[in-house]
Amino acid sequence: MRQPDGSSTFLTTRVETMLRWVRKNSLWPLPFGTACCAIEFMSVVSSHYDLARFGAEVVRFSPRQADLMIVAGTITDKMAPALKRIYDQMAEPKYVISMGACACTGGFYRAYHVVQGIDELIPVDVYVPGCPPTPEALMHGILKLQEMIQNGETHHDRLKNRNDDAAAIAG
């Protein structure tokens, strides 16, 4: 970067760190909202709580255009194949936040038609407790995810490391 006096300043970093910094600040969420929690998700993106402050407000309903899936609501056995399919359609790197007791564990529905936690189906990075979680709690979850992205602790990173290791051993 050229300074007014003609000298230059440098910022040295690793590409990896730079990429993580970029990724964490431009999360595009795909709200997989099925139930009551989805209404609280609406609150989070509405004017009062305004998720835009954390760079994660570009809500996209197409899995191809999103990298953060927020599962907000109960997932039933009937819904399960749809959830799995939509997750598979998202491009890497992708992250998952499980919002609310139902998505985390089935909540208080220990019942014949309810998935007892979405980690039966897809990997989860952050679990946000609550029934429904308050908007603050969900925002905390998103900040937590950003931290994990910066530190390389997400499921995506683990998967990548494992693949790299496997490649190193094989090669």
Partner: peptide
Amino acid sequence: IGYLHRCFEKMCETHGWQQVIPY
């Protein structure tokens, strides 16, 4: 329909009268 069938009626039968209210 049925994608959000959370078995409300069955859950009621396994809980006490007041416990139904959160459902």
